[in-house]
Design a protein around this nucleic acid. Structure first.
Length: 171
DNA sequence: CGGCTGATGATCT
DNA sequence: GATCATCAGCCGG
């Protein structure tokens, strides 16, 4: 759920990746720094960072305070406030709105101001639940990394057209 | 659909 | 100076 002055956006998460505390691919692997600080917060807090100088990535810290582990939110199915997402993404193609972490962040206006925010309570950005059945969950290796690239830590809803990645990974 | 490449900036070496 | 949890645009099949 995302609240901005212009209105409310709701999207259903359909793809995530886990980054573990002892995971060479995780930003927390070499210890806490100013950038990855919020990844070490209590589970449920946001970790937002800039990738490739352009895209913001939304993560949710997932461990106890002091443990650097979290979940990257990679894709979501737009449900409400779709016209707000279309305006931010400058396209009306449904699968181009939040399919991929950079697109998702742009569509829902995820800014660095949201870093370290508690997502378990209603606010500008938070995690709610939706009265809708969850599909079958597929598992694959993570996308776009070179370290620990063989671990099965990506999770997605099978059959959803809002999931990113090559089709061969989404069977 | 798959493959390639430039953009662009924070972070680390 | 290199790396990088990405994407848009362009090309060929």
């Amino acid at each position: 759920m995302r609240e901005i002055p212009e209105g409310r956006m709701v999207a259903r998460i359909v793809e995530t990746e886990a980054y573990l505390h002892d995971d060479p691919a995780a930003h927390s692997y070499r210890g806490e720094t100013p950038r990855n600080r919020s990844l070490f917060l209590e589970g449920g807090h946001a970790y937002v960072y800039v990738a490739y100088g352009i895209h913001r990535m939304l993560n949710v810290a997932a461990g106890a305070h002091g443990v650097g582990t979290g979940v990257l939110v990679r894709a979501a199915e737009p449900l409400e406030g779709i016209e707000l997402m279309q305006a931010r993404r400058r396209t009306t193609v449904p699968t181009d709105l939040a399919r991929g972490p950079g697109r998702l962040a742009e569509a829902m206006e995820i800014t660095m101001a949201l870093d370290a925010m508690d997502l378990t309570r209603p606010g500008p950005l938070w995690l709610g639940s939706i009265d809708r059945p969850t599909g079958e969950i597929g598992i694959s290796v993570r996308i776009g990394i070179t370290k620990a690239a063989d671990l099965p830590l990506r999770f997605y809803e099978r059959g959803s057209r809002f999931v990113s990645g090559p089709r061969t990974l989404n069977g």
